[in-house]
Design a protein around this nucleic acid. Structure first.
Length: 489
RNA sequence: GCGGAAGUAGCUCAAUUGGUAGAGCGAUAGCCUUCCAAGCUAUAGGUUGCGGGUUCGAGACCCGUCUUCCGCUCCA
């Protein structure tokens, strides 16, 4: 990260805290690592991002519906999805090279070497010992195996190992009031499985015909090896996911289609287009046959904001196997039943929030020859802005506040409005700039005579005189959803 | 988890070799009334991250701990 970008990112974080967008969790108790709270304005922005996504997915597509599944799910679901076996890795560190390895893989490598050297007996023995240790979750045994077979670090060549520790991706807790004898359940590490296990419910109750999609916004939880970069990687985070069910053989067409549609969704917010790019996955997850990330160029580099995966029929087939229920669809057009294939679009809400914030934040130099001047402004898309308009009486006497309150009352039925009469008008404009309010409506003495006000625009700082009666339509046109959603059609 | 750096007011930062914790911005109340910040007056806000130690005396020195940032690794 360059010095400049480093500065810039720090400023974004302070700005987010200073104006009530994001606070570190449990701050008065010294904080909780990799957990953050959304403040009064952050919550508005976050809700607006959710609304934009939900409308784009559910409202604009007649073959996509939304659900809200529970965070707790049957533990078997995570067996079926592969999370229990795939993300409970025994980890070991070499103290000299400072490298971390999966203990089982180190032993596997040793077995492979035995076989290569023709020592098949030794290979077999070690393999069975490894299997029984893994079966029993016997971590100390893994350590002794590594010691007994004199396995060295490929980098440092030493045998200076730490203890073997279990890395658990999933958080677990107890279901039921009694701690003993109750079942262990997990906090979901992704929302997708809540969609898959409701596939039949939604398909049947909604009379859905393939192709169709199920959308969901919700919290998910992951223990990360390391959490970093502000709200980029959090232990508790929120996902906006859509699983689109298609006929086998057509999945790659749909994959291409959703890939294009999702980028369009991002670009409709009018960010700097050059800060977005696709990043194809070379190494695919076990369940996917195509995958791409939509990346945004943060101050600390290009990072994934959203992923589009062609998940094949892996998830539904797994649930069919583990639950014993037929996860199939009868397709009238081709007169046959099949397990649908799935295209997933999965966007991290918190990352999207950070994208919007980084993209919007600007320290603007407004200096002229006579006067030094600057402002900090959030160029948020008006539809995402927490506050749509500020109502500002030019002075706080002569009946201007009363007139202003009339306007507040007329607009607040439709929009988030702020009223402010403190300090000079210029200062109030700058305060609104800092939180991204697109419109400032100023009431002056003329307003009392002819029912007009000035509207001051955030980005251009230009003003225009309009009739009070025009305000609802004007705010609607600028900050409403319609204009933004039209970009997607 | 390892290595490096850092934690002082809401934000950005000061505080000689250890000697009374401060400034700017911001906030609040009032004045001013003026369509683009930094005008005037007053006020609030701190157990210097936390715990221990050395010392007559610690924001500073030592130990521990927590948190954050930067690199290595993974992910949405």
């Amino acid at each position: 990260m360059s010095k400049n970008n480093d500065e810039q990112f720090k400023n974004v974080i302070s700005h987010a805290k200073e104006y009530g967008f994001v606070f570190p969790s449990s701050e008065i108790y010294d904080g909780l690592s990799a957990v953050y709270d959304y403040g009064q304005l952050g919550t508005e922005l976050k809700n607006n991002i959710k609304t934009y996504w939900w409308k784009a997915m559910v409202q604009l597509n007649d073959n996509i519906v939304g659900i809200d599944s529970a965070i707790f799910m049957h533990p078997k679901i995570w067996k079926a999805s592969g999370h229990v076996d795939g993300f409970n890795d025994p980890m070991i560190d070499n103290k000299d090279s400072k490298k971390r390895y999966r203990a089982d893989q180190l032993i596997e490598d040793k077995i492979a070497r035995f076989e290569k050297d023709g020592k098949t007996e030794k290979a077999k023995t070690l393999q069975s010992e490894l299997d029984s240790a893994l079966e029993a979750d016997d971590l100390p045994r893994l350590k002794t195996l590594i010691e007994e077979y004199e396995i060295v670090c490929p980098i440092s060549g030493t045998r200076n190992w730490t203890e073997v520790r279990q890395f658990n991706l999933m958080f677990s807790t107890q279901m039921g009031a009694m701690a003993d004898g109750s079942d262990e359940v997990y906090l979901r590490p992704e929302t997708a499985q809540g969609i898959f296990v409701n596939f039949l419910n939604v398909q049947k109750s909604g009379r859905m015909k393939i192709p169709f999609g199920i959308a969901q916004i919700g919290k998910a939880f992951r223990n990360e090896v390391i959490a970093r970069q502000f709200i980029m990687r959090m232990r508790e985070f929120e996902q906006m996911e859509m699983q689109f069910f298609v006929r086998p053989g057509t999945e790659l067409e749909w994959y291409e289609k959703w890939k294009a549609l999702r980028l369009k969704w991002h670009l409709a917010l009018k960010p700097e287009a050059s800060k977005y790019r696709y990043h194809d996955h070379v190494k695919l997850a076990h369940y996917a046959n195509a995958a791409v990330d939509i990346e945004y160029e943060f101050p600390f580099g290009f990072k994934e904001v959203e992923g589009i995966h062609s998940r094949t029929d892996f998830d539904l087939s797994q649930h069919q196997k583990f639950s014993g229920k037929k996860m199939q669809y009868f397709d009238n057009e081709i007169n046959q039943s099949y397990v649908p294939f799935v295209i997933e679009t999965s966007i991290g809400l918190d990352r999207m929030f950070l994208t919007a914030l980084c993209n919007a934040y600007e320290e603007q130099d407004l200096s002229t020859e006579d006067k030094q001047d600057s402002r900090r402004v959030l160029h948020l898309h008006p539809a995402l802005a927490p506050i749509k308009a500020a109502i500002l009486p030019l002075t706080k006497k002569d009946g201007l506040p009363e007139k202003a309150h009339e306007i507040v009352n007329a607009l607040r039925l439709d929009f988030n409005i702020q009223y402010d009469e403190k300090d000079s008008i210029g200062k109030r404009y700058r305060r609104q700039d800092a939180i991204g309010t697109p419109l400032c409506i100023t009431i002056d003495h003329q307003s009392l005579e002819d029912d007009t006000v000035t509207i001051r625009h955030r980005d251009s700082m230009e003003q225009e005189r309009v009739a009070i009666a025009q305000l609802p339509q004007m705010v609607q046109a600028i900050a409403g959803w319609k204009g933004l959603l039209q970009e997607l059609l």
